[in-house]
Design a protein around this nucleic acid. Structure first.
Lengths: 97, 97
DNA sequence: TTATTTGGTTTATATTATAAACTTATTTAT
DNA sequence: ATAAATAAGTTTATAATATAAACCAAATAA
């Protein structure tokens, strides 16, 4: 009746990050921070979890002399997001057959 | 950009309970337990939280000689659920304008 | 040269979800 | 009649999570 919800995605900030990356395909840490309103610390932890799970890729590079962390969604992440959204629907639809 | 998600509803079991009650209007504890697959302890705690928040009403009665706990959604709960679903959409829609 | 800002990471805390253990009463079996 | 099993939960303990606070290193600005 109710599909289980991937706990990695069922978390406000991580879901926001994934949502951003689904449509942006690639985003820098400060941009994600700004768009989500998260603190750097919280974002750092959550990005790490998504990365460890293989849902996103994190590339550490430089922009001029400054460090620059770029995040990209992976196929696995895209897949997981879709599955999550489908699962969510089982909780939101009014008619339960 | 991203609407905040009511933490009371953004939890798998509580969301399932609310989802059930939205369409059933009234349900007994053992029925909810069966439908959600939750343990009695977990369900008891989560029902309590929803009740304390005023999202559901809990009536303790008897069915013959056995105790019977009936749960009903309140207007406040219905409202909160709707708001939550709207907020969720900001995370799920592909186009972010 | 000493603040200040940028771009983060690490560590600590507080909350939460969940399960395990327990309680009380009722059936059912012996 | 008594003991075992089941029903219907509640309470307590534990483990996981989210989040913020503190910290660090390098670059730029005063």
């Amino acid at each position: 009746m109710f599909q289980p919800l991937d706990p990695l995605l069922h978390a406000e900030l991580r879901l926001a990050v994934m949502s951003l990356l689904i449509s942006a395909d690639e985003a820098e840490f400060p941009y994600i921070k700004e768009q989500t309103g998260a603190t750097a610390g919280n974002l750092s932890v959550q990005v790490d979890k998504l990365s460890t799970a293989g849902y996103i890729e994190v590339e550490k590079t430089f922009k001029g002399k400054r460090p620059c962390t770029i995040c990209r969604i992976t196929d696995k992440g895209r897949q997981a997001f879709e599955t999550y959204v489908e699962a969510l629907k089982s909780y939101l639809s009014v008619s339960k057959s």
